[in-house]
């Protein structure tokens, strides 16, 4: 699998990581090499094999519907790079 610069552009955009033109070249070869190496997985016959996303064997436990958290505005906001009053602040978004 070769990863061309357009693919690098697309995925770096999806991942919201700016990739400069010159890095894009390097990344496309890096990612291409890694994916080539990963493609040895194709050798494995996985017909009919159920995918495994986690190894837990217990059942998902449910929480009671009680309010036990929140009302910690200061804690929530204290590490924010920019805030105004009780809001987080970001560059203006146009919908």
């Amino acid at each position: 699998m070769s990863v061309d610069k357009n693919v690098v552009k697309k995925i770096s955009r999806l991942a919201r990581i700016h990739v400069s033109e010159e890095r894009s070249e390097m990344l496309s070869s890096d990612l291409g090499n890694i994916l080539n190496w990963i493609e040895q997985l194709e050798e494995v016959n996985t017909d009919g094999v159920e995918p495994l996303s986690g190894v837990n064997e217990h059942l998902l436990a449910w929480r009671d519907d009680t309010v036990t958290d929140g009302e910690i505005t200061d804690e929530v906001l204290k590490n924010a790079p920019e805030k105004a009053g009780e809001f987080f602040v970001v560059p203006k978004v146009i919908e």
């Binding site: 929530v76 105004a84 203006k92 978004v93």
Partner: peptide
């Protein structure tokens, strides 16, 4: 997101 609080910023309430 509140877009009408500031000319160049959006405010976020979670």
């Amino acid at each position: 997101s509140l877009h009408d609080q500031h000319p160049s910023k959006s405010y976020i309430d979670l």
